[in-house]
Write a protein that binds this DNA or RNA. Structure first.
Lengths: 187, 187, 187, 187
DNA sequence: TATGAATGAGTTTTCATTCAT
DNA sequence: GATGAATGAAAACTCATTCAT
């Protein structure tokens, strides 16, 4: 249903713009160019609308299917970058997806449904990266000292942290920091 | 003014608990055990109350004065840990301070006053850590390859990222990841 | 929309009764026998509600359409009387319409929207009366000495002034004064 | 007491500026450059403060003592003009005194104390003008046809009406209309 | 299936008044 | 005599949800 999709899109934009707790159903309908009644008609309530919108956005940021075919740690970068950048320029961070991610991570503590789905997704992602690190350590490309799980946790957390800081201070150059991390990790 | 302080405390707790956009002045007053009118009397409005509460909390997390006396990179860890952990157990992350930090970082995009104060604080912190990294590189304790600014940016972002993930999934062991980061950085 | 109309009616009554600045949306809703939310639903805010209510009342007091068919100055009297009196008795001044007029004239200084609409209406009315005076002077029915514009201004201002005084002191006999004015004007 | 006087002055200004119903005690104290507590200390409540302020202003507009020495109707004009104009330019209408008069006349309907004092003042004024008209009619200066009381009522009401219209539309030339009235009245 | 008018609970803010100092 | 911190009642406004059409 196109209507449903338009509402989810509008809701994701507004979560990023005004913050989860201040999104109103009226604003979502208006942004989507749809009548206000459409929200209640397609979703059980505001909570459901926002949860679905956030999950759709976050899932697009961690495309597990595509990640499964990655074999080199450095190949993660372009994939992740593509999912958080605005199409024409891969250097610009898309404020909607990164904003929704940050909002959703905070919202987890209050919304069990969302929490379950987000942590499940992140665990799958962490496990995938752990396997990747393990393989690269086996090949001698990545430092063998650190535990693969800890390293994967670090890589993901550092990525999110850089994202958050870039969102806060757009002038902050984070590309250098990301490269430093990869250089440190590789032998 | 004890009243003002009680309101700031209650507001910080609620920002972490329910999220910036859903804190109500009524709830703040109730939590502080004060009449509702006290909020309007002591603050110009909700925005001011929340901004002051968030800044007081975040400033306590980055105690620049104490940081100036630090000379070794590893000495940062206990200081940071102390500022974000609940007093009895330094291993537990205080959900209030870390929650407020996460909320404030998101709120920056909509609140210029907050944005100015937070970015100023983080820039001072980043500059301080950069100097520390530089000194440690001179002493040969830290890898000389990476640019000191990028390394400092990475360290802070990784710290915040780990904090955020720990907040999201309390069972996630982040201590190991933090140690891995330091081990990679040191020669 | 019957609801909207009921609110406008109730608002006009309350403007006259308690004064513009002390009308509350709650009281308007209650007077109209409607829920409180109806006010915000049908109007953008209190200001808009009161402005619309006042304009509807004042426009009914100066029925320009009907005035255009008037040819004799004395025919103005019954028309004006009809628009400000309570239906059964044409001698009694309706406290609502005259009260709203007085309140609206005062409010103009603080409400540019209202000011524009009221002054436009009064200018149209003044111009219409000026034409009428001019015609009557040509016919020799009205004193030819005074300037038609000044005379029209005087007639209207005197009418409003008598209205205001009658409102203040209901026992004051103003009918005699009104007749005196017309007698002086006519040759 | 100078303090009391300063409060009355400030209150009169604010009545004219924001309207009777929207004057706040805080604003009065601030305008007077006095502490907020001074209001409660010098007056029994807001109602008393505003009533006293309005009466002091209105009484200054109708200086009965000076009026008693007037013998010619035309001598009323400069006296009235002086009491409602701003000192340097007798042509400009003082928005404070005329605004307070208009507000007070409307407020009478809700404030019995004020109503008593205002109607008493206006009746005294009307009686004085009636006597004046009677004398002038005896001297043959004023048209003998109309009843003196009705003529006095008309004169006062027309004056107030012109004042009100000038307040509403400052560009409206009312001097001509006033002269026309006097010309009509005189033989 | 789809709409938008209607509702009322809940939010922020204002403010006269009280009262301890 | 004088002050201003404190209070709570009441105001305007927002908004998710319901429901008749």
């Amino acid at each position: 249903m196109a209507t449903r999709h338009q509402l989810l899109d509008a809701a994701a934009q507004l979560i990023a713009e005004v913050g989860w707790g201040r999104v109103t159903t009226r604003a979502v309908a208006e942004r989507a160019g749809l009548p206000h009644g459409a929200v209640s008609y397609h979703f059980h309530g505001k909570q459901e609308l926002l949860t679905e919108a956030a999950m759709a956005t976050v899932e697009a940021m961690f495309p597990l299917d595509q990640l499964r075919s990655v074999t080199k740690l450095t190949d993660l970068i372009p994939l992740f970058q593509a999912s958080i950048s605005t199409p024409p320029d891969p250097e610009t961070i898309d404020p909607v997806s990164s904003g929704v991610l940050a909002e959703a991570m905070r919202e987890c503590g209050r919304n069990p449904e969302l929490r379950g789905r987000i942590t499940e997704l992140l665990r799958a992602y962490r496990s995938l990266v752990t396997d990747l690190v393990h393989a690269e350590q086996g090949r001698g490309v990545v430092e063998r000292g650190p535990d693969a799980t800890d390293l994967a946790t670090l890589l993901i957390a550092a990525g999110d942290g850089l994202l958050l800081h870039a969102l806060l201070d757009p002038q902050l150059p984070i590309a250098g920091a990301a490269e430093v991390l990869l250089a440190l990790v590789h032998t």
